[in-house]
Amino acid sequence: MSDALAAVTYRVTREALVAYAAASGDHNPIHQDEQVARAVGLPGVIAHGMYTLALAARYVDEQVGERGRIATIGAKFTKPVVVPVEGVDVEVSGVRKDDRTLAVTVTCEGVTVLGRCQVTLRD
């Protein structure tokens, strides 16, 4: 069994990153401040890795139709999601590996940003 799920596009904005920083407690300025991000060698403001993983969780919740079904979720943060002033789109898609396992792909500007993003569901 291996079924592709519909791809969904989410818009990531700097305003959302500021809101996520407040909600998560991660106030690292590389996620909010262009100058700080560039000073440490980044191409610009980047999304929190956990923000991108939260989008993957949102995608799975929407695909299964409810929250609370995810038993495990994990990924490697392989590439940054660079968020310009006008925001950026990320595309999330998934493949059902079996009844309980989904492989999730998140891309930004055509580049895969999460490695080995896998989600398992509870019954």
Partner: peptide, 23 residues
């Protein structure tokens, strides 16, 4: 709700998202 809305979704009640424990 604050956590969920930051990711562009909405929340009324029920379980928190799976990555919420990062808080």
């Amino acid at each position: 709700r604050t956590f969920v809305e930051a990711t562009g979704a909405s929340y009324d009640a029920g379980p928190a998202p799976a990555t919420y424990p990062i808080v």
